[in-house]
């Protein structure tokens, strides 16, 4: 897969303290990359460096295979961004806000109506933006990011401060972008639950260091939990399981098995049924991703 963003040992120091510390970020084309970390971990600092808003203290950023320092304008022409709190000109209407950006980008005029439609702000476009709700401002920010028909979209906490329906709306919008327009998306958040439903790959950053970077499927695997069986005669059933080489245990009259793939679950259930056990429940008990996230954030990287 083609790599869109690649950073090599990216460092940003503020007065000797490293806000971003040897960060190696790698984002593939067409992916939705969830950039996760607690508040103050260095997400926004990293994103500002990716956009050339602040200068790295060390390391390199390559976007579309080009060096950001040398070809910043060429790269930015293909990037749309929304950094932290939405930026807007409150005294101007939504259309004029977009027009101010359109004039700089040189995008066609009809693009304004298109992006307003994408973020469903059509009908509100003539009102001054200062009267907009936070969610509408956030959507206007996304519209502005989409205005130049970017190939890469960088969204920093796009759902911050939104209500659940707003979050849902923006989430489905983000998910539709790679599918419909082939856009690569980098989206940051401090909540895994927000990211896990849309991201293909996640990178977890803590105190400026990348402590986990892999696909969301892998992360799920790591959180694979125990199989829990509730049967009529637990003790006899456990003996039967032991005989067949299953490694389980009995806890509060329930059988627990760890590390079971589908085939082994099926075989065990079949064997137990054949032995005349009544099986009431077969459940997988997962460690939630959020728990895993906290564990990764707190446990590793020390």
């Amino acid at each position: 897969m083609e790599t869109i963003i690649q950073t090599a040992d990216l460092v940003k120091r503020y007065r000797g303290r490293a806000a971003v510390d040897h960060l190696n970020l790698s984002i593939g084309k067409g992916d939705i990359y969830g950039f996760l970390g607690p508040n103050g971990a260095g997400k926004t600092t990293t994103i500002r460096m990716l956009l050339g808003l602040i200068a790295p203290s060390g390391g390199q950023v390559e976007i579309f295979g080009k060096d950001l320092r040398k070809e910043r304008l060429d790269i930015l022409r293909r990037v749309g961004s929304l950094v932290e709190s939405p930026s807007y000109y409150g005294h101007l209407s939504a259309v004029d806000n977009l027009e101010a950006i359109r004039r700089i980008l040189g995008a066609p005029k009809r693009r304004i109506a298109e992006v307003l439609d994408i973020v469903s702000l059509t009908g509100e476009e003539k009102r001054p933006v200062k009267g907009f709700s936070l969610g509408m401002k956030q959507r206007l920010g996304i519209a502005a990011a989409l205005l130049g028909s970017p190939e890469l979209l960088i969204l920093d906490e796009p759902t911050n401060g939104l209500d659940p329906s707003g979050i849902q709306e923006i989430r489905s919008l983000i998910m539709s972008l790679p599918r419909e327009h082939g856009i690569t998306v980098l989206v940051s958040s401090h909540l895994l639950s927000e990211i896990e439903q849309m991201a293909g790959t996640v990178g977890i950053i803590r105190q400026g260091r990348m402590i986990y970077q892999d696909t969301i499927a892998r992360l799920r695997e790591r959180s694979a939990g125990e199989m829990r069986l509730v049967v009529s005669e637990p003790e006899a059933a456990l003996e039967e399981a032991f005989r067949r080489g299953y490694d389980g245990m009995l806890r509060t009259d329930e059988l627990r098995f760890s590390g079971m793939d589908d085939a082994r679950v099926a075989l065990l259930v079949k064997a137990l049924v054949e032995r005349g056990h009544a099986i009431y429940r077969v459940e997988e008990q997962r460690q939630s991703l959020e728990e895993l996230f906290l564990q990764v954030v707190e446990g590793e990287g020390r």
Binding site: D74, R77, S81, V83, E84, P86, Y89, G90, I101
Partner: peptide, 18 residues
């Protein structure tokens, strides 16, 4: 102040302009 008010600098300067 037009740019400072909502930190519009970060939006403006992330556009392809020197």
């Amino acid at each position: 102040n037009i740019e400072h008010q909502t930190s519009a600098w970060k939006q403006l300067l992330a556009l392809p302009v020197s």
